[in-house]
Design a protein around this nucleic acid. Structure first.
Lengths: 254, 254
DNA sequence: AACATGGCGATTGTACACAATGCTTAGTGG
DNA sequence: CCACTAAGCATTGTGTACAATCGCCATGTT
């Protein structure tokens, strides 16, 4: 009955470096990770009571976490109808990528100017972690760490509003990648991350921006949102029904 | 002392805009306006219970509104210590303006491509409202409407993440203007808004972007955050003590 | 006299009870 | 057999009681 995963005390600290380990942050981080690692498929309903039981907290906490996730765009909050994991449409994905191009360019330029040696070292560490995850076959963690790399880069740009915006964009991007990435292709080559760090360390702004733009190109060239949007949209809409099946191209004859 | 401004219960409840008329939004909008119109000075404490009594709702609703305001950067939420009206530092103001330059440029380019005739008409209407407010001497409403103009422009750009980011930036900008604007200078010349609309209507992207950038220049040239940041910072910190006084330049002899 | 410490009041944080809403399904009439 | 209606159920929305925490102030000590 009261089966819950320990009343939330251990706190593996796996999530972000969030200053305080408040319950909110724990619940938020766990749901967030679960979504990015596709243990929660797009469209899945997130019942407040069920989550509360799982995490051993009341609906109040769950609700706050869901609200935060909704603000970042990875959860959709439907009034009186509960929350579901977001299913970004192709159009939404395009908008996110457009915004990211914009922001990443600015972040790169600023990071070249302001990144400290310590931050550059941290970035290199993150690329290592990312590579390890992929070599371990942990795709979910890889996607998440790849996103955290871009977030760390934003912090080096030293502009609070941009960091906040980037957090939201990276979250949504990760969800989009998890949803749309085609096949087995490695989705975010960490080599590009390394080259980027090198350019930043050499304070070569032009090179860094070029690398970043190519990086953006590579990311969305690996996704399926080019033309066959219809089938992908269907997949998104009905993903909560299909457990593991992934219709390749047929428009789904219901 | 149950003095409250009508218990807010009237709430049409008619099937009309299902989400727009919720209590949350009403409370949010009222506090937001009060802050922008400087009826609530930076640093003012926002007690949940007091606000709940004023608006005739429970702390639950107030808390949500404050949370939303905090996410937009106009309210600071201190754990266990309540919420206060944000007091953006000069550095924070600079960061906001830098981010706005970035976003406004992109929004302008996109609006030139995508703005419909209807949207352009709405923009013109907003400029009229803005001018009316200033001619009425309603500075607070003017600042708010000026911000809403820029937000409307973002909507014409048809990019959801950018709209959301712009909303946050505009909110913070309005607060900064209310806090730092020097003297009586009209703060956001609606003429520039009109010219901008003209350029957009003519689909002249280059002109529109230039106008927007000049507009940005004008806005922050009217603020006091250039050099004498020390005194302004003091003003920000102690603004909850000074009722209406506005020290022009002297470093405030307390 | 100044600083440290402990109690007190006030305010926020959390949980829970109840109300309201939407979905589902069973039942009835065409 | 299908469509429509209505009632039941499950889930979310809101208000409120209680617990935890913080700041303030008085008191005692150095």
């Amino acid at each position: 009955m009261n089966e819950q995963l320990q009343p939330l005390k251990k706190q593996p600290r796996a999530g972000k470096a969030g200053r305080s380990g408040t319950q909110d942050d724990i619940v938020y981080a766990h749901i967030f990770e679960a979504i990015l690692e596709q243990r929660l498929a797009p469209g899945t309903k997130l019942s407040e009571e069920a989550l509360g039981e799982i995490f051993g907290v009341s609906r109040t906490i769950i609700r706050r976490a869901l609200s935060r996730l909704a603000h970042e765009g990875v959860v959709l909050l439907r009034p009186n109808r509960g929350a579901v994991v977001a299913s970004p449409s192709v159009e939404e994905a395009r908008q996110v990528f457009m915004a990211r191009r914009l922001v990443e360019r600015a972040i790169t330029e600023l990071a070249v100017q302001h990144a400290t040696a310590e931050q550059i070292a941290e970035l290199r560490q993150m690329v290592n972690d990312e590579r390890d995850s992929f070599s371990r076959g942990d795709r979910g963690a890889g996607i998440r760490l790849s996103g955290e790399f871009h977030l760390k880069l934003a912090e080096a740009a030293k502009n609070a509003p941009l960091i906040s915006f980037q957090r939201s964009l990276v979250s949504q991007t990760s969800l989009i990648i998890a949803q749309y990435e085609s096949g087995n292709r490695s989705h975010c080559s960490y080599d590009e991350h390394t080259q980027l760090i090198d350019a930043i360390e050499k304070r070569d702004g032009e090179l860094a921006v070029n690398l970043m733009m190519h990086h953006m190109d590579h990311i969305d060239s690996k996704l399926n949102l080019d033309e066959d949007s219809a089938s992908d949209d269907l997949h998104a809409v009905f993903s909560h029904l299909l457990q593991t099946k992934k219709p390749g191209r047929s428009p789904a004859k219901i």
